[in-house]
Amino acid sequence: MATLTAIENSGFGIWVRESGSVWSYPTIIFLHSLGLAFLVGMNVVLALRLLGLAPRIPISALERLYPIMWAGFWINAASGVALAIADASTMFISTLFYLKLGLIAAAVVNMVCIRRYVFAHPRIDRVAVPASARLMATLSLVLWAGAITAGRLTAYIGPAVALKGR
């Protein structure tokens, strides 16, 4: 706990939380939303296609979504680390926060599995979408919705709440 408090009250932690600069907390949390929109948004596109909702989109072309999804992921990993430092003593003892991290980890593993098993199929656009791919697509929607829900709710705990209103 002493370590967490030290992290939270480090120069960087205080700057993020208390500097009042538009470049600290406000910009970091904006980037966290931006990364979310592209990471989850493109995952949704991929899942909807695998579930058969826009069947004329060539699945093989959607492999190019991965660089966008990874860009969103890394924007959120970096901004998320900064936000977690600013609220370290709350976040790192919060079940909700670990639930969020767990859901994101599962969603990212699932996303990598889709690339490895679905896109690796040489005739992916000539055969029906396999049941396993539809299962992974469903899992993707459920896990990302869960990650957003848990993430949104962490905004209601910790010292930075005062900054955020509610």
């Binding site: 948004g41 949704v44 596109v45 919705a145 957003i148």
Partner: peptide, 13 residues
């Protein structure tokens, strides 16, 4: 936020 991801994901693509 879920609506945002849907809208920005699809329009953005």
């Amino acid at each position: 936020f879920i609506g945002m991801a849907l809208l920005v994901g699809i329009v953005g693509l």
